[in-house]
Design a protein around this nucleic acid. Structure first.
Lengths: 212, 212
DNA sequence: TGCGAATTGTAAACAGTGATTACATTTTTC
DNA sequence: GAAAAATGTAATCACTGTTTACAATTCGCA
């Protein structure tokens, strides 16, 4: 977790305002969720007047989008790293690895996951990097599924439905956690993370060709 | 869709303010999502001063919670009706009927589904009716699953994982729609609703005991 | 029927918000 | 070194949720 480096601005110009504003916004998100972010408070923490941020961001949504871009980048690289460090080349296991890394990051960074997945907070369409990172994760899931089918490892041949189901399951588990639908199924003392992993692995055996 | 009935208040007292405020808030939600709701605008539309709503709701969240209660009640009864009108007593088909009714309502009432499922907008813990209605839907899913297992119709005996997976799948599909993760998988010209149904039915065959 | 209490409205104010505008300063560029 | 571009400030606007003091109305009861 890199600390916000405020370079103790000396003169009239700040020199680093854009990045410092993003860091301040991230800090505000961590302190009290997305609703805790205000442009003015971010400006105050950057030691700058309330109007200054609008030289760097067209509006509040643009600032939140920058926060989302940073978060999404870390999200993507954590998942990419996880799947690269998987020993086996079993595509189904690789898919499980993606899903587990996905859930792990979402559960450990709930407010950031909320920001990157809630379109009303950000301007999704205007950000190429958001789309790229998201597509990278999606295609990682897709590839492993397609490969599994090619090796005849899937129970069903309806790969489109299977893929959407897989994505919906992972996304649903993540959102159930961050939306608080979770108290009821912290099963048998397991943490949310462990439970989510169990369910994902269960799903993986369901779609597989072997008997459970 | 019942129209807000403003009884043309004559005197100093409104007589119906609480309900009219809820209706106004619902209208604002329909016009521009949850973010479009403001207590003052609701008061204005009810023809009342900005402070008046606080005689009926402790704060804005309480007003939104009342909106959510109304929406959740309709959500529950639509699902309950759907499953009561299912001819068969096949528990797996009954589960599918619940899921389809769930997705149907969520997709056709996206902003209201967003309100009832996003805990940051409402005061979930303080509302008994929200909990009751939610639990009713959950237990409807649970019952059909348990029955399916008792009749040996499920592929896996890990019923806890199967149940959570089922809920996560339905919830994930609904949220993917309302969060806009959907443009990519409006598959083959199908509407979101039809696609979601296909995926759900695919999942149902996956968990079943028969060969696909 | 009348009177005190509870309910429910108003008006005015407060602090906080996103955003814009006119202006000032600094940096960049030729 | 001067014109231009970038980036800060100060003031201001309209809007928000919420509170407070006060006024009008309705309700419960002698």
């Amino acid at each position: 977790m890199p600390k916000a480096k405020t370079p103790h601005r000396t003169g009239y110009h700040h020199g680093n305002l854009r990045e410092v504003l993003i860091d301040a916004a991230v800090q505000l998100v961590e302190e009290g969720g997305p609703g805790n972010v205000s442009v003015r408070e971010a400006a105050k923490r950057a030691g700058v007047s309330p109007g200054a941020p609008f030289r760097h961001f067209a509006n509040k949504t643009a600032l939140m989008t920058a926060v989302a871009e940073q978060a999404m980048s870390r999200f993507r690289s954590e998942i990419t790293n996880a799947v690269e460090n998987v020993a086996t080349d079993d595509p189904i296991e690789r898919f499980a690895a993606v899903g587990i890394a996905y859930l792990r990051w979402a559960i450990r960074n709930p407010t950031h996951f909320q920001i990157i997945s809630t379109r009303s907070l950000i301007d999704w369409d205007s950000s190429e990097s958001l789309r790229n990172d998201n597509e990278a994760v999606r295609s990682l899931m897709e590839k492993s599924m397609v490969e599994a089918q090619q090796r005849n490892m899937l129970r069903s041949t309806d790969i489109v439905e299977t893929q959407i189901a897989a994505r919906a399951l992972v996304y649903g588990l993540a959102r159930m956690c961050i939306d608080g639908h979770f108290a009821q199924w912290a099963v048998a003392g397991h943490t949310a993370e462990r439970t989510a992993q169990n369910v994902l692995e269960h799903f993986v055996t369901l779609i597989g060709n072997d008997a459970p």
